[in-house]
Design a protein around this nucleic acid. Structure first.
Lengths: 191, 191, 191, 191
DNA sequence: AATGAATGAGAATTCATTCAT
DNA sequence: CATGAATGAATTCTCATTCAT
């Protein structure tokens, strides 16, 4: 019966889509208001200013992505299966929130991000770091710095995701599986 | 026949560094002027407006990158060696112009880009596309859409480059070789 | 036959304190609402808008001040005793409503005042004018324009009142008597 | 040959007149710009923001007023002559800068004033304080707290000044002399 | 009647661009 | 040619006022 957060929610959604498409700086507050179907002033009832809105949005979705990765993580399974979980989580997150990953990607070193946002993002990367560290110990992952491994997986995935977004790639099952295998090949230790 | 005017050059350099660091929209014309050591008005002698400057910059560096890739391309060698050339070109370009690749990456779908810029960027991607198409024919590259293969290589490389940029990764010979091998593993067709 | 509604009263009190401290323009309607312990919308049940509230407040307190001066005015006593009554009335009014006199002072030529407010304020000054006119006739008050005499008494008193307000002066009996004598010296005709 | 400060000067003049007439809060930046004959943006070349402009203005004119009082102060003459100097300085300052004194009066406890402004204003009052302290020592001034004496002189003078401003009083020689005598009567120790 | 969330007109401020020097 | 002070359109943000609950 409560609709608490209905407005806040539409503002965040509207901002997400616009920030992903045009970027934070090229998006005006009235644009966000129109996209959320609220008055411009209303945005300031929920967010102190545009930067706070940007940080809230970033933290919100980095948080959801982090949870998605952590959720049901198969700690006891093979490294390959763990990688599959990570890849599938990325896919799932992308399907649930089309713009979120692209927004995170394009704004993860944006000038307006505060310390909390940076911390959130580090937490996200730490999940991948932990996975790679354990994989390297088990001799199943290449002996590269984890930050490099993350960059490869994260960079490749996000660039692919952009292609899906702009319609240049259809995310059919076969393609998704092949891409997963391709990125896995990049990081796995070959015999 | 190039580097026309030392001023034009400093403006482009200044703008490149600033656009890479802060993004096009968060960079003001006076900032560029200060960084180039010229008056704000001088910028308008060389570029009609900020957007034109952005496009010139984009085209300039995408052009250089394209040339770098084309230069001495080993058409008659193995696919692996061709990949090595591409990878080395990326490295060389990055070393020559630290900010250029990151600027290209973060602005390749920017709102201010005109048709010429998009065309330039397509030309760049086409080099990679041609390489992958021929590699797939020779059964040395995975049977994935070329756009996906490009995304993987380009995405991974740029994310790595960012780490080097921010100092989180030292580009020593061993690391660079390992990374090349890793990305090659992602795209090569395994036995 | 007044104090209609406890809410109207709290709104007026809240507004009085805030207008005196911050001024009309720097006081927001939500501030007044909070200070009065009512919702912002409630203010509009009692006052058409902020300007009307400002005028009501001004008229209310100028009216009370006027009454205080008129009340038991010793028409048949000496000019000095009449002056004492005026001075005592100012003191009494100030004690009853600490902020009122300062509010009147700082807003008596405010941009939002309407004709009725200006008229009220003139009525107040007329009491002093009448007193001075009669005092000059009796050769007990200096031969200065009444408006000048009013300015001296009113100006000096209000500036003193401000000192009491901000705690820089303690309104002890001796001081009050001395100040009265000082201001009386300013206007009385010396032998 | 330098016109350095021409714009800055017109902005300050324009702002002074408007702040005196309408008050700081009821004056908009475009109003100031129009009154100074410059573009709105120009104001921000000279003053960081509206508050800084307000403080600069306050400090500027309080400073001039302070200098006017200090200039040729007759330290070795009678207390009465010193009072005459003070009164004449106030008159001179008022004639030179019609709006300045009223602006100072109405904004000396304004919400936007910073510490420097408060300090400036204290310096101004300290001149009067020093005069009264020395006068009391010489038994020529009433034994009232100096702050109270200042309030009487300052309050009376400013209220009179307002009457001149709005045209209700003509500042003829005779009137000015009489008013000086009246205010002197308020503070001098009577035999 | 009372509320306070929502609104949008209007204020402060920024910055791409022009132009007199 | 080069400059940077000046501009005003565009942007962020505030707050008096309304109105559904």
């Amino acid at each position: 019966m409560t609709t608490a957060g209905t407005k806040r929610g539409s503002i965040l959604s509207g901002a997400l889509a616009l920030f992903a498409e045009r970027g934070f700086d090229a998006t005006t507050v009235p644009m966000i208001a129109a996209s959320a179907g609220v008055g411009a002033g209303t945005i300031y009832r929920y967010f102190e200013n545009k930067e706070v809105l940007g940080n809230s949005l970033f933290q919100e979705y980095v948080g959801i992505f982090t949870e998605t990765l952590r959720d049901e993580f198969p700690f006891d399974e093979t490294v390959r299966n763990q990688f599959h979980h990570i890849f599938q989580s990325m896919i799932r997150f992308t399907i649930k929130e089309v713009h979120a990953l692209y927004f995170i990607k394009t704004h993860s070193s944006a000038h307006f991000l505060d310390d909390v946002s940076h911390k959130c993002f580090q937490d996200l990367l730490d999940i991948l770091r932990t996975f790679f560290d354990s994989g390297k110990e088990k001799k199943e992952i290449k002996e590269l710095p984890s930050s490099a491994l993350i960059a490869i997986v994260y960079g490749a995935f996000l660039e692919l995701q952009r292609l899906v977004q702009i319609g240049e790639l259809q995310p059919e099952t076969k393609l998704v599986e092949d891409v997963e295998e391709s990125i896995w090949d990049a990081v796995r230790l070959h015999a």
